[in-house]
């Protein structure tokens, strides 16, 4: 299985080459085009209860699509719904990543996707919700962001502060605390940041250059209000 990101930038697409018999699971609706040798199946990843918890707890889709090269080798073109970059990770069987609920685009069959509950403070204040996706296993993992993706590499004990709602994915070897952006409550909110996540390494943290909630609020002001 090979992947190549086409048109990198705001509107990328990823081409995944599948050998005969190989398959990839992708978010429902992610496929743009594919070779005629590819069969598209719908699958409830993690069984019915797993799919149900993913749907209701993380807001992810109930079904994933499985793209299988059952009638010979072929390629699949995948793209996310929102404008933003695609990042390719190679899971080695030990590294695990937490992914915010809209961040998953596609993954090799060996990649396991679970929904996991966060602590009350993280759920309330991290901007990612109470339930997030945990990616483990082995194989290629494709994530997408809103805006550009920036990778932060943290050494053991190294800290970095990320504004909530800008998180895409982070290693489970990292840890983070939610805290006020500034020392005072008023200044925290008047600064426009509110709460931030203080990450501590080692591990990787992928952040997105745009905040979907903030963008939504900005768009909302231009939507005409009917009486």
């Amino acid at each position: 299985m090979k992947s190549e990101i086409l048109y990198p930038g705001a509107f990328p697409m990823v081409r995944v080459e599948l050998a005969e018999g190989e398959h990839i699971k992708a978010e429902s609706g992610a496929m743009v085009a594919c070779s005629p040798t590819i069969d598209i199946e719908s699958k409830m990843e993690g069984g019915f209860l797993g799919a149900l918890s993913r749907k209701f707890l993380t807001g992810e889709k109930f079904f994933f699509q499985t793209l299988r090269a059952s009638r010979g080798a072929g390629e699949v073109l995948l793209a996310p719904t929102v404008p933003g970059e695609i990042v390719v990770l190679d899971l080695d069987g030990v590294s695990e990543y937490m992914v915010q609920k809209d961040g998953f685009l596609a993954g090799a069959d060996g990649v396991a996707i679970d929904s996991q509950m966060q602590s009350m403070s993280r759920g309330l204040l991290s901007g990612e919700g109470f339930f997030i996706l945990k990616m483990s296993g082995k194989g290629m993992l494709l994530l997408n962001s809103f805006g550009a993706v920036h990778k932060i590499e943290l050494k053991p004990g190294q800290e970095y502060i990320v504004d909530n709602s800008h998180l895409v994915a982070w290693s489970t070897t990292t840890t983070y605390n939610i805290e006020k952006a500034t020392s005072g409550w008023v200044a925290s909110f008047t600064s426009g940041e509110g709460f931030v996540c203080r990450f501590r390494g080692p591990g990787l943290v992928f952040i997105q250059s745009r905040n979907p909630g903030g963008f939504g609020a900005w768009v909302r002001q231009f939507i005409p209000v009917t009486e």
Binding site: E153, T173, P202, L204
Partner: peptide, 19 residues
């Protein structure tokens, strides 16, 4: 066989070296 730990250090990548 399958790695079961991640090792971090100056000469390893930030994501850790599987071992």
């Amino acid at each position: 066989s399958t790695p079961n730990a991640l090792c971090f250090g100056d000469e390893f990548p930030a994501s850790g070296a599987p071992c």
